[in-house]
C-alpha cells in the first residue's frame, strides 16, 4: 500500500490505535486502528451495526473508549466527553442531526460555547451576528436565523451543524451520514462543502452507506464488519465493486483477489 509522501513527514492528524468498545456482550468495536491526515477524507463503510458510529463516537467523546489510544497531531489525547473532543478541534455532525429543535440557529450553533457579555450573560446579538456570517458563507439562502430549527429543512439543519465546525475552526470533522436525511440538491451542497473543507486542510471522517458517494469524495475508504476493521484502501487503487465485496465478505481485498 503506497502512502502519500507528506504523510510520512509529520504525524497524522488523528491516529486511533487498537480501539475497543463493548456494550455488555456486544463487541461494537474490536481492536480497530486507523489514521486520518490533514486535508484527507476517509470514508467509513460497513453494514448496519458494523461499528462505524461507535468508532467515531470514541473520537467525538460521545462514547468513552474501553481500550485503545488516540493521538491528535502526534500527542496522546484524553477524550472523555464531547467537551474534551471539541477542545482538541474535533467537531461532529451526528447521524440524527443532534440539534435542540426548540432553539434558534445561533443558540444551536453556539450550544455549550456561548458568547457572553462582560457581565457573564448571554450575548445573543453577537451570536446572531457571527451565525449570520458563517451561515451566509455556507448557504446564502438560509432564511430566518431566529426561527426555531424545527422549522428548517434537512439541508438547512445540516448547515447549522456544519457552521459549528467552521466557526470554531475545527481541525477534524466527523460526519456520520451527513446526507442521509437530505434531498438531492441538499446532498450536492453538503458534498461541495466537504470538498471545500478538505481543501482547506481539515481531516474528515465520513460515515455513510452510500458506496458511490463515499467513493467520489474520499481519498481512502475503511471497511468495517462486526466491529472489526476489514481493510483500508486508497480509492485510487480499488473499484467500488472491490469495496462492496469487502463489505459483504468481511475479507480484505488481498486475501480475496490476491
Amino acid at each position: 500500500m503506497s502512502e502519500p509522501l507528506e504523510g510520512r513527514v509529520s504525524a497524522p492528524l488523528v491516529e486511533m490505535r487498537r480501539m475497543v468498545k463493548r456494550f455488555g456482550s456486544v463487541h461494537a468495536v474490536e481492536d480497530v486502528s486507523i489514521d486520518l491526515r490533514a486535508g484527507e477524507v476517509v470514508g467509513l463503510l460497513g453494514h448496519n451495526g458494523a461499528g462505524k458510529s461507535t468508532l467515531v463516537k470514541m473520537l467525538s467523546g460521545a462514547e468513552p473508549a474501553d481500550g485503545g489510544e488516540i493521538r491528535i497531531a502526534g500527542e496522546i489525547a484524553q477524550i472523555r466527553n464531547p467537551r474534551d473532543a471539541r477542545r482538541l478541534g474535533v467537531e461532529t455532525l451526528y447521524q440524527d442531526l443532534a440539534l435542540a429543535d426548540n432553539l434558534d440557529t445561533p443558540a444551536n450553533l453556539f450550544l455549550g460555547r456561548e458568547l457572553r457579555t462582560p457581565f457573564g450573560t448571554l450575548d445573543d446579538h453577537a451570536m446572531e451576528r457571527a451565525a449570520a456570517q458563517v451561515i451566509g458563507r455556507l448557504n446564502p439562502s438560509f432564511g430566518d436565523l431566529r426561527a426555531p430549527v424545527r422549522n428548517l429543512s434537512g439541508g438547512q439543519r445540516q448547515s447549522v451543524a456544519i457552521a459549528r465546525a467552521l466557526h470554531f475552526n475545527a481541525r477534524i470533522l466527523i460526519m456520520d451520514e451527513p446526507t442521509a436525511a437530505l434531498g438531492p440538491e441538499e446532498t450536492a451542497m453538503v458534498v461541495e462543502i466537504i470538498r471545500q473543507l478538505a481543501r482547506e486542510g481539515l481531516g474528515i471522517f465520513l460515515v455513510s452507506h452510500d458506496l458511490h458517494g463515499v467513493f467520489d469524495l474520499s481519498d481512502r475508504v475503511a471497511v468495517m464488519k462486526n466491529g472489526r476493521l476489514v481493510d483500508v484502501c486508497a480509492t485510487s487503487e480499488v473499484t467500488p465493486d472491490d469495496v462492496l465485496a469487502m463489505i459483504i465478505t468481511g475479507e480484505p481485498l488481498s486475501s480475496v483477489g490476491g
Binding site: A62, P82, L99, N102, A107, L111, G112
Partner: peptide
C-alpha cells in the same frame, strides 16, 4: 436545550 433535545444537549457537552 435539554428540554428540546436532551441528547443534543449532552452531545454539546
Amino acid at each position: 436545550a435539554m428540554g428540546g433535545n436532551p441528547q443534543a444537549a449532552a452531545l454539546a457537552g
